[in-house]
Design a protein around this nucleic acid. Structure first.
Length: 592
RNA sequence: GCGCCCGUAGCUCAAUUGGAUAGAGCACCAGACUACGAAUCUGGGGGUUGGAGGUUCGAGUCCUUCCGGGCGCGCCA
């Protein structure tokens, strides 16, 4: 039996169409869709087959629909086929078609819904990539959750997925980190210098004044004693310690980032170092290659539109012909002092990812990098480095007690990832972050995320799973091994005929389709909504048992009905578990 | 000024990617607890999908334009 009822129905419709109208082009047939309907009055499923093929077949949609209905009259799956509206064919399946999915689910377990749509295409999903200059905050959190869930989702849909974290450990930012760490080191040693005196000596001024670097200073003292301090803080003197302190600080920041990611339950397969690429001359190689292709020139860019920087003056730089590949302006590869730009490094990085075997690269970025998308895609195109898609995550506003928590880097008032998880827990963070399309801004209401009500989807879905497990535990107590999960796959299901039961089975059967569609659209939030709906179907059925005792799951005197319902409950638990697995949320056994 | 994203019920958001009469939760109104968990459920009111044009069998979805909000806009990363 197939894992996907909708796909099976679609296959029959296409066969019927081809029988009646041989030679319909494949691209026309590809548009034929079978989907569940919103309005129960239209049956269970509907197909647009007659409408999308009408032109190619040279017939009216209504005629085609009538022909389809006739052709499907004696189908073994389809009980009712009826033409409707402008050319839909509404379908109702025999209940057996839905019931048959239950043992399929029970045998597949959490693998139910695993698909082949990805065709093994190698996808590299890069996400988080927080700069190693401070703790992770809520701004990183959405990208971390969305990227992780997207990677899981695509793996489930049959892509070969690699999860990657890009460490920006080269450039001015980590130099600034080194200076700031060095200050904390001097403090740890009990320096007589004031912070203002120190800051005056730092090229570009002292950044990163947050106290999260205090432990770095202390660790430096513990490891190096005062040996680094003896070298002084002048520009020339700093050469003696700068690299040491920088590498040490980066390492500590990465440890903290990895700890935060572990708290979130996010694990990357690969951490890539920007510095290593630079040291391997990968950036120079890319520029050389682009130069050979005639895509590099020395030139001067127009001043930026909008508000002009105070110190703007025309300067000649090494430029990449990004405009040839769809960007708005050409982009600088080298600064006027001859050093490489971040963009040049990033080109080398993407070339590297492609060279490592990615057919498709997906970068998950914050919305503040939106202006960077076109140029990076232009770069990937120019390099012939496969395909790049970018998923942008819009800003998250945190609400507490109905009040927006305004975050400001300058004021140091930002919510760290650790704070957030302490406040509401990992599962709530992950689930809530996936209850919005990533390209829409979202409000994260801390109070709602911990509420134990239907208002809170995390709770509602976990509660459904816990209820399922609770029923199954009670069943084993009362009925013994015949009610164990393994035995349920062979139990007769004919007694499952109530509308609420059929609705639940239809929902379960649409899981493979949901996985595939969400993966192809790169929209992991759909999984959250599916689970919410599924939980609703289950809770509804549960509550029918209150009004109608005959619908309760466990009935001592009706073992056949009981086992059939238990099979349905077990299948529900598995699909919820499968979906939560994609989201990285715990399927709890009981609520406390 | 330009680019990208968003605008859907009083509020927070969906809408099977172009499908039928736009759906949920919260809030509001009216009901339901002797249970395998009422931490829930049943029913009701609530909409010119920001405005205006267009494309076609069919538009919240695509195109044009305007309005409003967010993000970004020479060498930062």
């Amino acid at each position: 039996m197939t894992q996907d009822v909708l796909a099976a129905v679609r296959t029959r419709i296409i066969a019927a169409l081809e029988m009646a109208h041989p030679g319909l082009p494949v691209e026309v047939l590809a548009r034929v869709d079978v989907s569940s309907v919103r309005d129960p009055a239209h049956g269970e499923l509907a197909t647009n087959a007659a409408m999308v093929t009408a032109k190619a077949a040279g017939r009216k949609p209504a005629d085609l629909a009538a022909g389809l209905v006739a052709a499907l009259a004696n189908d073994g799956l389809i009980a009712v086929a009826a033409p409707a509206g402008p050319g839909f064919v509404n379908l109702t399946l025999y209940p057996a078609a839905w019931r048959e999915q239950v043992p399929v689910i029970l045998r597949a377990g959490e693998q139910y819904g695993d698909g082949t749509a990805g065709q093994g295409v190698r996808v590299n999903v890069e996400y988080v990539s927080a700069n190693p200059n401070g703790p992770m905050h809520i701004g990183h959190c959405r990208g971390a959750v969305v990227g992780d869930a997207l990677a899981n989702l695509m793996a489930k849909a049959g892509f070969t997925v690699e999860k990657e974290f890009y460490v920006n450990d080269a450039g001015a930012q980590v130099q600034a980190l080194a200076w700031a760490s060095y200050w904390r080191y001097l403090e740890a040693l009990g320096t007589a210098m004031t912070i203002e005196e120190f800051a005056a000596a730092v090229p570009g001024g002292l950044q990163y004044r947050g106290d999260y670097l205090v432990p770095v200073g202390e660790a430096l003292k513990a490891k190096f004693g005062d040996s680094l301090a003896a070298q002084g803080i002048g520009i020339a003197d700093s050469a003696g310690w700068l690299d040491t302190v920088r590498d040490f600080a980066i390492e500590m920041m990465l440890v903290s980032i990895r700890a935060d990611l572990a708290l979130l339950g996010v694990r990357h397969d690969v951490f890539s170092s920007e510095r290593k690429l630079v040291e391997a001359h990968a950036v120079d190689a890319v520029i050389t290659r682009l130069t050979a292709d005639g895509l590099v020139y020395e030139g001067t860019l127009e001043p930026p539109k909008g508000k002009l920087p105070d110190d703007w003056e025309p300067r000649e730089q090494t430029l990449f012909r990004a405009t040839q590949f769809g960007d708005d302006v050409d982009r600088a590869l080298r600064k006027s002092d001859g050093s490489n730009t971040y963009f040049a490094n990033d080109m080398a990085y993407h070339a590297d990812k492609a060279a490592r075997g990615a057919d498709l690269m997906i970068d998950v970025w914050g919305a503040d990098h939106g202006g960077y998308v076109k140029r990076m895609q232009a770069a990937v195109k120019a390099l012939g480095a496969g395909r790049l898609e970018v998923v942008l995550c819009q800003i998250v506003h945190v609400l507490k007690g109905g009040q927006a928590m305004r975050m400001s880097k300058r004021a140091g008032t930002y919510v760290t990832l650790t704070d957030l998880i302490d406040e509401v827990g990992r599962d709530a963070v992950r689930f809530t972050m996936l209850t919005r399309k990533s390209d829409a801004q979202m409000e994260f209401d801390l109070d709602a995320a911990v509420a134990q009500t239907r208002e809170n989807p995390v709770f509602y879905v976990q509660y459904a799973h816990a209820r399922c497990r609770s029923v199954l535990r009670a069943a084993v107590d009362r009925f013994g091994d015949t009610a164990a999960d393994a035995a349920l796959a062979n139990t007769p299901l004919e007694s499952l005929e109530h509308e609420a039961e059929l609705a639940l089975m239809r929902r379960l059967a649409s899981w493979p389709r949901t996985v595939e569609a969400a993966a192809l659209a790169r929209e992991p939030h759909r999984i959250a909504f599916f689970l919410y709906d599924l939980a609703g179907d289950f809770h509804t059925l549960w509550n029918r048992g209150r009004d109608d005792a005959a619908l309760r799951f466990l009935q001592d005197d009706r073992p056949t009905e009981t086992l059939a319902r238990l099979a349905l409950v077990a299948a529900t638990a598995l699909v919820i578990r499968s979906g939560l697995g994609v989201m990285g949320v715990t399927p709890v056994e009981e609520m406390r």
